[in-house]
Design a protein around this nucleic acid. Structure first.
Lengths: 334, 334
DNA sequence: TTGTAAGCGTTATCAA
DNA sequence: TTGATAACGCTTACAA
């Protein structure tokens, strides 16, 4: 089955290719009659636009690239899915690139995306070690960063949840329900957002006249067995620990399991709060309190702002902070 | 910053565009000397291939489309991620399309992907109501189906977990650990795979001389509140139910919660097994037994087979079944 | 209101 | 071993 092109449409409807193009793009002027005729032929033949040709000619691909560390992570997949949805409604397709937190792969993707002529880029998170420096990769594709502080903020728009606020509120909550030695549990591989969360935690401690020192932060590493070892060692050293703010739900759940095995009662002896409010929080025992990020708002902001940036390339440099909500469940109850 | 093209490379290295193209694609013949020179210039200028032009010319896009119902579902995201990884290694980028189980959106995506000239298509699952009939959408893009039985198997390759085997084994396990009235819990919106699972369940019942009737199957609907109502009604009617095979982990977990609220003890009074073996199974109380699908194998098979199909368009019609593994945890313990 | 034709960056054919 | 050039399907001045 041969592909049908504008040329065929032109021939079949007895007009020129230029007219066909105008009709398709609702450009220039043409009579109602020809419009009808052309559209009818298009319908009949099942014509499909060849986007490569269009892109080549117009330098617009109607394609957006998304760089994301790990799509099986709930927060990421949720945001990506929502962005994709919005962009599709606006006529853009999305190439989702799973970088697996691998810098080389990220750079490779960047090259490909560039070659495909993406109109814009959304970069989500990533480890702090290689903060995104897209300018080095030259070419001027507008891009926005979610949750990853770019090296040069002036070249982009930075969108982030208010991690600071979330951690601050969560910590104050722990204190309010009676924790005397709340700690912050975080992966050694720290992201921009984890740093913000840590500083919210610290600030809440300070405001409530608690001291922050080695006994206030538990560093963890994957795999779970290693986490277990680290957690046990920590509780050996600091047995008065009675509250944990974890840097994400996955860690919080792992800790729930570990602590349960160590015979601690949650929330009676130790209260736990996670981050992200993933669906699993409802199914753990006890159900996990968590700081909910407003993924819908983040996605919407990101998509709209990128589209805007594509029209106004110079209006970069903004930072947009999206509020979070503390979802209380049993794991931090009195 | 102007984009550099083959023409520029040609000029700078003192050869023709044809030669540059040959070097880039390692095509035709050229002297070692020119090769070096050209590659050097490419390196220096940071030249990036314009894929739109290449695609337009060659009719190959090095892009694969993936149609997936819901990327925030663990099984789907896991498979997609793995496919994407393999394809990228082979030089293909992937456009992931979230259809949200919406037929119209799926058709729209199909059009766009066609327009972008994707070289192949991977279609994952979907509700049974609109079994994929890509042939109707004409054009002959090779495609393979995962977990979704296509209308016309002869046009594609069908890859699926052995849902039948998984359900069969899980059911036999329930019986072995003492269940006298095991049931199958399933969403009303049934997929191809759910049907297979149901038939494995039935067969295991039969083999063990249990009868299958209305009391053997619990139909559920979202949202959770509705599920709760349905479950309570079911247990009212059939109070001797003592084992559940759920059609996926999400439902199993919801049931765990509902049954817990109804004061049932799991696994003492009722044993539960899920499907997919998502990470959450470790964090529920009790930890959830589940049938694990071999996502790595599925992804690998799908990617390799699609690439193969792209070279040998006529060798369709195969069905590839991937074995599953029953992961036992406490929710179905004696 | 419509048509002609140039040109986007590649690859491929043919000739040199 | 190389170079000139047509062609891929589309948009867009410019002409008519």
């Amino acid at each position: 089955m041969k592909k049908v092109s504008v040329k065929d449409i032109a021939k079949l409807s007895g007009v020129s290719v230029a007219t066909v193009s105008r009709v398709i793009n609702n450009n220039g002027r043409f009579s109602e009659e020809t419009r009808k005729k052309v559209l009818q032929v298009i319908e009949e033949t099942g014509y499909e636009m060849n986007y490569s040709a269009k892109t080549l000619r117009t330098n617009k691909s109607y394609t957006i690239g998304i760089l994301v560390p790990d799509i099986s992570n709930y927060f990421f997949s949720d945001v990506v899915q929502k962005i994709e949805y919005i962009l599709f409604e606006r006529g853009y397709s999305t190439i989702i690139c799973n970088t697996g937190r691998n810098e080389k792969k990220e750079l490779d993707y960047l090259k490909v995306l560039q070659g495909k002529g993406v109109d814009g880029l959304i970069v989500i998170s990533g480890a702090e070690e290689f903060s995104f420096d897209y300018t080095e990769a030259k070419k001027e594709i507008p891009y926005i960063c979610i949750d990853r502080e770019p090296k040069d903020k002036s070249q982009t728009t930075f969108i982030s949840s208010n991690h600071y606020q979330g951690a601050f509120e969560a910590t104050e909550h722990l204190i309010k329900v009676g924790c005397r030695h709340p700690i912050f549990a975080v992966l050694n591989r720290k992201s921009t957002s984890a740093k913000e969360r840590l500083s919210g935690f610290k600030e809440a401690l300070k405001k409530n006249h608690f001291t922050f020192d080695n006994s206030s932060i538990l560093y963890l590493d994957n795999p779970p067995a290693e986490m277990k070892r680290q957690t046990q060692a920590f509780f050996n050293n600091y047995p008065t620990t009675d509250g944990i703010l974890a840097t994400n739900d996955a860690i919080a759940l792992e800790l729930l399991n570990i602590l349960h095995n160590m015979q601690y009662k949650i929330p009676e002896q130790i209260k736990v709060i996670g981050f992200d409010d993933s669906p699993i929080t409802n199914y753990s025992t006890p159900p996990l309190s968590s700081v909910q990020q407003d993924t819908a708002k983040i996605a919407e902001t990101a998509a709209n702002h990128l589209l805007y940036l594509m029209k106004h390339p110079n209006e970069t440099g903004q930072t947009l902070i999206v509020p979070v909500t503390l979802k209380l469940r049993q794991s931090s109850a009195l």
